[in-house]
């Protein structure tokens, strides 16, 4: 059972914006539907409430307009009945909208977004954005980060196998960035000096955009990465292509002082933090 609600309760945005209404990017993740469902449920209920307000407004404007020559009723609305009525409606709104979405959100967080996979079969990636590019790091053959055999592919290229949970730990190199995968409905800030984490699982292959969602300077808009979701075999062969060759390291830093100023060093990476 994937859905709480039927999938297409998009009527409210559609109603207002007509043919300009746009779908979100295609969801290719295991848990993205949960976010869509929360949004759709909220769409539906607030649509109903706002509809009631607008209907009431329209009715009052028509019925009680001054030109009818009637006199307004002298009513302070302070009676116990009225106070109970407004209070009751307030509580009704709270329990029908807020309590429900809170419950849905907590359930989703517990089951998916904050429930990091415990199994062995997990791809672990470290992400270190810099102004204005994405750096990725894979643990390499020894499955440990911060060692010599870490695989650091070329910038902005992230590859993951399909149908495998991916855990990402993020820390920024310079200013605050935000790791945003629209197709996976996921976003996590990258803050310098601090590691944050998220996980997701792709359900389809393809190439998707990675965007930076937090203002990080004048080329913020160009800070674009590519997430390639591919089959397990393709992924493994891509990894082996990028495995660093032995004894090449000593020559790399030579005479590269200028680049050191802005870019991340060749051998970046931190020991993987255990997720509680």
């Amino acid at each position: 059972m994937k859905n709480y609600q039927s999938k297409n309760i998009n009527s409210i945005p559609y109603f207002f914006s007509g043919f300009w209404y746009k779908d979100p990017p295609k969801d290719v993740s295991l848990d993205g539907y949960r976010i869509d469902n929360v949004i759709h449920y909220t769409d539906l209920v607030i649509g109903i409430y706002f509809g009631i307000v607008v209907a009431a407004l329209a009715y009052f404007i028509f019925k009680y307009r001054a030109s009818l020559g009637h006199k307004a009723e002298y009513d302070h609305g302070n009676s116990r009945k009225n106070v109970m009525f407004t209070g009751g409606l307030g509580l009704l709104v709270f329990f029908s909208v807020d309590a429900v979405i809170e419950k849905m959100a907590f359930k989703d967080l517990k089951e998916a977004f904050w429930n990091f996979p415990k199994t062995e079969n997990v791809i672990r990636i470290e992400v270190m954005p810099q102004q204005f590019a994405w750096n990725f790091c894979y643990a390499g053959p020894d499955n440990e980060f911060g060692t010599d055999d870490d695989i650091i592919p070329s910038q902005n290229q992230m590859h993951i196998p399909v149908n495998t949970p991916v855990v990402v730990q993020i820390a920024s190199w310079d200013v605050i960035h935000s790791f945003y995968l629209p197709n996976f409905r996921i976003k996590q800030d990258a803050t310098p000096g601090m590691i944050t984490a998220l996980w997701f699982q792709a359900t389809e292959t393809g190439v998707f955009d990675i965007a930076c969602a937090e203002l990080c300077g004048n080329s913020h808009y160009k800070m674009k990465g590519f997430l390639t979701v591919e089959s397990e075999e393709d992924f493994q062969s891509w990894l082996s292509e990028n495995t660093p060759e032995e004894s090449q390291d000593d020559w790399d830093d030579w005479g590269d002082e200028d680049e050191e100023d802005t870019g991340v060093p060749e051998d970046w990476g931190w020991a993987w933090k255990e997720i509680k």
Binding site: M194, I195, T196, W270
Partner: peptide, 11 residues
């Protein structure tokens, strides 16, 4: 603030 300060992983 204190709770948050204790929570985050710091490099």
């Amino acid at each position: 603030l204190a709770y948050d300060a204790q929570f985050n992983w710091v490099i």
